[in-house]
Design a protein around this nucleic acid. Structure first.
Lengths: 225, 225
DNA sequence: ACAAAAGTGTTGGAGATACACCCATGA
DNA sequence: TCATGGGTGTATCTCCAACACTTTTGT
C-alpha cells in the first residue's frame, strides 16, 4: 500500500500601500520553455517535523519570510486533489513520487508588506503579490479552493490582534479603517469607526505625520508594545 | 524514510436528559487482563479515502453511529504524540506499525442521544458516554488535548444550526436554554432568552406538552423542517 | 395545600447609528 | 485658490439587561 504524503500550504496575506488585500503566490516553471503555473507556497512535510515547524521551514525556503504569524485553518484531503491533468507536469518536475496521494494542511500567514519584499529562493520560480481580486482561477491542484477557504477564514476570524500583523508599523486611521472595510466587506462611518477604535485601546498616536500628501497630513499610529 | 500515517479522531458530543454535555469515549482492552484505556473514537485513514468519508466509516465501525453531523476542526501533528510509554501497549495491540508517526485530523460530531444508544462493535472494547466534567485525564495519546480543543471549538462556534444536532426532536425551551448555558458557560435570563429565541425563528411550538412531571408541563418545540 | 418549574411585559440605560463642516497640505 | 482627504461632536434610536408574579401539574 503506497503511503499518504503530508504537505503544508500557506495562504499569505499582505495589505499594501495601495490599500488592497493581497496574497503571495509562487510562479513555478513547469518545463524548459517559458510555461509556468501559479500556486500557493507549500511543500511536503519532513518525516519528523512538527506541522507548524514545517510550515515555517517551507515558508522560509520558498519566500525567505521569517518570524511571521502562522495559523492552521484546515486540512484538505480529497484523494483526487493532485490527480488533474493540468498538474502532472509540475508533479513530475518537483516530486519524487508524483503519483502518490498528498493530504495538505492549510496555514494562514499575515505579513507586514513594508517589512518584506519577497525574493525568489531559486531561479526556478519567483514569488509575486497578487490582489485577491485578480488571482487566476487555474492555480495548481486545489489551491483556488484552499485560497478561498483561507480568505473566508480570515474574514470570519477578524480581530484587532490578527489585523495588527497586516499593517505597517506606522499607519493612519484611514488605512486601518480601509482594511476593516475590506475584511468586513462594508463601508464604515469615519467618526464612528474612530470612536470605536479609540475605546479598544490597543493603538496609540505618535506625533509623526504623513509627508508628501497633497491634503491635510494624517497622524501616524502604532500598536501599543 | 518511514511514512507518516494519517488518522481521524472524533470528538462526539451528546446532550442528555440529565442536562449534561457528554462525550463518547471508547474503552479498549490493552492486554489479556482487565486493563483498559479510554480514548476518542478514531483510526487510521484508508489509502484512497476522503477525510470526511474516513471519519464516517471509522465512527460507524466503532460506535454504529450513522448519518450524523461531522465537522473537521483541527489537525494534530506533534511527532511525539504517539511516543509516550503509556500508549505503547495499545499501539502494539492495535497497529501493524506501532512505531510509525501518526498525524491525526480531529472531527467534531453532534448527536441526538435519544436517537442512539451506542453499541460496542466488538468485544475488545465498549463505548461510553462520559460527562465532559468527568473525563479522566489519562486518555490515550494526546486525546485529552484534542478533546479540550474540540470543546473550545464547539463553544466558539455555537450557532443555532449546530445546536439543533444535539437536541432531541422534541424539546422544551428550558432544555434549549440549559444547553446554551452550558456552552456559553453563563446563566441566562429566562424571559430574555425566550424573547431572543423567538426572534430567530428556527424553532416552532408543537401543541404537545411534557407529561408526568410534577410541575406545570412545558410545551414541546421542534426545529422547523 | 405545597413544591416545582412554566410562562409572561415593561422600563431604563448603554451603545450603535446617522449626519456636516472646517482644516492643512501640495499642486 | 482649489482639490483632496483629515479630523471632529451631538442627537436619536435600537437593543439589551434587569426584574417578579401567576399558572399548572403531581404528590
Amino acid at each position: 500500500m503506497p503511503p499518504i504524503n503530508l504537505s503544508i500550504d500557506c495562504v499569505i496575506f499582505g495589505f499594501d500601500n495601495d490599500q488592497k488585500l493581497k496574497v503571495l503566490l509562487i510562479k513555478k516553471n513547469i518545463n524548459k520553455k517559458n510555461d509556468y503555473q501559479y500556486a500557493l507556497p507549500g511543500d511536503l512535510l519532513n518525516h519528523d517535523e512538527d506541522l507548524l515547524t514545517g510550515g515555517k521551514r517551507i515558508l522560509k525556503s520558498l519566500t525567505s519570510l521569517e518570524n511571521i504569524f502562522l495559523r492552521q485553518f484546515h486540512a484538505f484531503g480529497n484523494p483526487e486533489r493532485t490527480k488533474q491533468k493540468k498538474d502532472q507536469a509540475w508533479l513530475r518536475l518537483y516530486r519524487k513520487k508524483p503519483e502518490e496521494r498528498v493530504v495538505t494542511i492549510g496555514y494562514i500567514a499575515l505579513v507586514k508588506m513594508e517589512e518584506y519584499v519577497p525574493q525568489a529562493a531559486s531561479f526556478a520560480f519567483q514569488t509575486e503579490w497578487v490582489n485577491i481580486k485578480d488571482v487566476p482561477d487555474n492555480l495548481a491542484f486545489d489551491h483556488n479552493y484552499i485560497l478561498d477557504y483561507g480568505i473566508e477564514y480570515l474574514k470570519e476570524q477578524i480581530d484587532h490582534k490578527l489585523i495588527s500583523n497586516l499593517l505597517p508599523s506606522r499607519f493612519t486611521l484611514s488605512q486601518l479603517q480601509h482594511l476593516y472595510e475590506i475584511l468586513l466587506d462594508e463601508k464604515l462611518d469615519k467618526r464612528n469607526f474612530r470612536k470605536n477604535i479609540s475605546k479598544i485601546d490597543i493603538i496609540k498616536k505618535t506625533n509623526e505625520k504623513q509627508e508628501g500628501v497633497r491634503h491635510k497630513p494624517a497622524y501616524l499610529y502604532t500598536y501599543k508594545i
